[in-house]
Simulated scan of single mutants.
Amino acid sequence: MPGRLEGRIAIVTGGADGIGRAISELFAREGAHVCIADRNKELGTKAVADISGDGGSVHFVPTDIADAASIKAMVAATCTRFGEPNILINNAGYITFTDDPVEATPETWRDIFQVNLEGMWECSRAVIPFMRNAKKGSIVNLGSVHSFQIVTGHFPYAVTKHGVIGLTRSLAVEYGRDNVRVNALCPGMVETPTALRGWAATGDPEGIRKAVGETHPLGRNASPEEMAYPALFLASDESSFMTGQSLIVDGGRSAFYSD
């Protein structure tokens, strides 16, 4: 039986690790040709070896999402290797927290916006012309539960994630007539390697892991694979009448009130 993305050409930014790696693996299993766009060459090379070893069609392009020229080169390499992309997963991003917003430096503000929002737009801008020409395409932007809820001490990360929703809705409206769909996937806490390293640095990784998990009504954190399947739904024709929406996959966290 053909996969749910058979013959599609997908770019996954930040695809060498965490949620992006899980998405890259699943999309390849579902028949897509996958370009992993990531700045970590070691992890990118390993991801290609692992996924291709399982029979997947995958290619790694070292990419700096904060650099528009790097993004354009990555998209050009994808076209050369596989053809014009019709799926984009804007997953790359990072987290930085400032306890007091007025103490955030201009560099902190600029750097996180350059990756989490501007880089997402530059990737979208690079692939949308191909999707418009083909009259078919799906873009999935990674938001967060922080796209809807403000938690103290998470500035300016939460600001960028609110911006992701605005970008998603704007592009969906602008390009819907071209059958280019744009949606956001908004996770709660996911146990990525980055999260695990952060908890390890506290000296009580299991205690922090348990405490964070208990903020979700399901009583636990998500695995990266639990984000890959919703991303697959948004990228595939199964969501063909869905655009401009935010799919919240957060274990019930955004429905839970805590004072």
Rank of each mutant, 00 (worst) to 15 (best):
W121A: 06
R197D: 07
K135W: 04
H216L: 13
S258M: 00
Y257T: 03
S52W: 03
K41F: 07
P205V: 08
C186A: 00
G163I: 03
A228S: 13
M242K: 09
A69V: 14
H146P: 06
M131V: 14
L167F: 10
P129F: 09
A92E: 08
I95Q: 06
N90I: 02
G83S: 01
D111W: 12
D64Q: 06
W121S: 05
A76M: 00
T13D: 06
E206C: 03
F82C: 03
L196G: 04
Y94L: 01
I9L: 01
T80F: 05
A134I: 05
N91L: 09
L196A: 07
P62V: 12
H33T: 07
G153W: 07
T202F: 04
F82E: 02
I51N: 02
V249N: 02
G251K: 14
V190H: 08
G15F: 06
G219D: 11
G7P: 02
V164Q: 01
N40D: 13
G55P: 07
A104E: 04
K72T: 09
V58I: 14
G14A: 12
P230L: 11
E25K: 10
A184Y: 04
D204L: 01
I139S: 03
I128Q: 06
D17E: 01
Y229R: 11
T194A: 15
M189Y: 15
E118Y: 11
E25F: 13
L247N: 09
G3I: 13
P224T: 10
D111Y: 03
A104S: 07
G252A: 10
L117K: 04
D99H: 11
L167D: 03
D259M: 00
P187L: 08
A66D: 15
G44E: 02
Q149V: 12
T243N: 08
D50A: 14
G44V: 04
N179H: 13
A76N: 02
L196P: 02
G137D: 10
F148D: 01
M120S: 11
M120I: 06
I36E: 13
E30M: 07
E30G: 10
P205L: 05
P129V: 12
E191V: 05
T105V: 05
Y94S: 05
I112C: 06
R39L: 01
S239A: 15
S223A: 15
S24T: 10
